[in-house]
Amino acid sequence: MIATPRYLGRGSWLGRRDPRVPLLVGVLTAATVIQIWDIRIIAILFIIGQLYYRSAAIPFRLVRRQWAFAIVFVSILVVVNTVLTGGAIGDYDRSDLHPLFYLPLLGTPISAESLSYGATQLLRFLTFITIGFPIAYAIAPSDLGPALARLRIPEKFAFGVDLTYRFIPSLAADLQETIDAQRVRGYEWDRVRGGPVARIRRAIPLMVPLTMNAIVGAEDTIDAMDLRGFGTGRRTWLRELRYDRADRLLVGTAIAILVAATVASFAGLTKLWVFPLLLALAGA
């Protein structure tokens, strides 16, 4: 079951960092990558991202499915988008494109520019994903709440996130129990029959009892929080967080890269780079 958060980066170099670091590096990298369409710059960021990812020492065999899902999903997204756009690329005028061939049946022109755009888009996604993995697997779930609170996110929101992560394992266990209970009654989710509506209806025997039980069970948590005076004063967290030199260096590097990317973007240096080989093939 993928529904349980796993702390796979425990004890690694990145796992020993302040939990705010992966969050900050993730946000700063996202802000950086959004501005760049030159695949050469993205490739450099991707390599830096891979080094960063490796410092989390996440065992590949434990996240193989997640990597496979992410790669297949973004590949489909890029291919479908390329087909859907009819070969159009952002600011490019159709007359400026250099077609290489046309898709059979659809007649969509595949140009040097659209292939370069697709490859850049794919690498951008992979960079996002690379940086996202340590957030998922190199932060102890119990550290998320204090980390968000120390990042000056409203404390009730931070506490809500903390609580969400605490509920996931118990709800996953409840889901398994519900599945087993329904199976005894002859229910099989996997039995493929009927269209999407029929299949959605098959989710009802799982969703309704699980949701209602969770809501009823929530009353105990609410009572416990009320009895402890939740929300009546400023909340403190048991876990104390403090940046060390390596934390500052990592965040400082991410900020420096963001500033450099922003300057380069304003200077027009991050626009789509078209592979010269493809242009040559298109006869440009």
Partner: peptide, 21 residues
Amino acid sequence: DSRTIVYAAIGAALYGVLALF
């Protein structure tokens, strides 16, 4: 309040758990 936070957390966790299907 506490009620809002707990129901919100339950909702988010349920979405995460049930998204398996």
